[in-house]
Simulated scan of single mutants.
Amino acid sequence: MPVMSLKAIAGPGSVTRVSQDNAVEDARSARQRDILKTLQQNRQVDVTELAQRFGVSGMTIRRDLAELDEAGQLHRVHGGAIIRRAPAYGSRASIQAGEKAAIARVAAQLVEPGAAVGIDSGTTCHAVAAELAHRSDLTVVTNALHAAITAREGGSRVIVLGGLLTPELSLVNPGIVREPPQVHLDLLILGCGGLSVDRGITYFDPTEVEVRRLLASLADRVVVTADHTKFDRKKAMVLGPLDLIDVLVTDAAPPEPLRTALAAADVEVVIAT
């Protein structure tokens, strides 16, 4: 029996529909990213103004705002949306605290002696910094003040990327992407807002994604630390596809089809117990 290609089986019409669906999804993702950036700048957005700006209907914008509201990235109000403040850092650190501690212990074991390691912002990455705090042989590169202060306790050299201080006590600076620091990272410890098959590694805050993308480009290996609550969650800001990850350290086996997608992307999944 001859082997038929997917295109031959599905037919040209199906392939065209897939391409059209992908284009719609790309446009929707780009529009939602732009909405969040506008919200960061202006603290509120208006449905009518957004519809005129993007050349779409008010109903389309309302669907965008509903999705972003459901994902916890803004707060819908009559006629638009306002910025939603993230829970305080301390309160988030207490969520899944045991799982984060176990993940941090395993991730810290991946840091070789004398390594240059990048550490992302966020509570799980801060837990990794705490696991490394007794070491004095590392070069730590971070834009997160929590991680920088903790890692410095052991005497390791700490390089802090400068910029505007965010409420999370991380520093963001668009200029750093144009003039990246002259450093090489053996390993990058990344957190995430969500991991999904279709969007890959995603985040809430648009201002920090470019810094993360820069650090990933400087690293030989990327280790994502994420507990099971991040599985199949989607935030609007996309860092990159799953194959950007070398190792995923987590507390539970990912569900299908995410598990299959991670295997296809050649991601090593380490479950901390």
Rank of each mutant, 00 (worst) to 15 (best):
residue 218 L to G: 00
residue 82 I to C: 06
residue 261 A to W: 00
residue 132 L to M: 09
residue 56 V to K: 01
residue 178 R to A: 14
residue 198 D to I: 01
residue 113 P to N: 12
residue 172 V to S: 04
residue 258 L to A: 11
residue 122 G to S: 04
residue 223 V to Y: 02
residue 69 D to Y: 05
residue 267 V to E: 09
residue 167 P to G: 13
residue 114 G to L: 03
residue 260 T to R: 14
residue 239 L to S: 04
residue 264 A to L: 14
residue 185 L to Y: 13
residue 121 S to V: 12
residue 227 D to P: 07
residue 45 V to W: 06
residue 204 F to W: 04
residue 54 F to R: 09
residue 96 Q to N: 14
residue 200 G to I: 02
residue 162 G to A: 15
residue 150 T to F: 05
residue 234 K to G: 01
residue 77 V to T: 14
residue 145 L to P: 08
residue 202 T to L: 04
residue 177 V to G: 02
residue 134 H to G: 15
residue 162 G to V: 11
residue 198 D to H: 12
residue 82 I to V: 14
residue 226 A to M: 00
residue 194 G to D: 10
residue 236 A to F: 03
residue 166 T to E: 08
residue 66 A to Q: 13
residue 121 S to I: 11
residue 145 L to E: 12
residue 235 K to E: 10
residue 254 P to M: 15
residue 88 A to Q: 13
residue 2 P to L: 01
residue 68 L to E: 01
residue 121 S to A: 14
residue 245 I to S: 12
residue 156 S to F: 02
residue 244 L to I: 08
residue 67 E to Q: 11
residue 63 R to T: 03
residue 190 L to Y: 06
residue 273 T to Q: 15
residue 42 N to H: 15
residue 97 A to M: 11
residue 164 L to K: 12
residue 24 V to H: 11
residue 53 R to M: 08
residue 41 Q to G: 09
residue 233 R to A: 12
residue 246 D to C: 04
residue 46 D to H: 09
residue 27 A to P: 04
residue 204 F to Q: 02
residue 58 G to V: 03
residue 227 D to S: 07
residue 137 D to T: 12
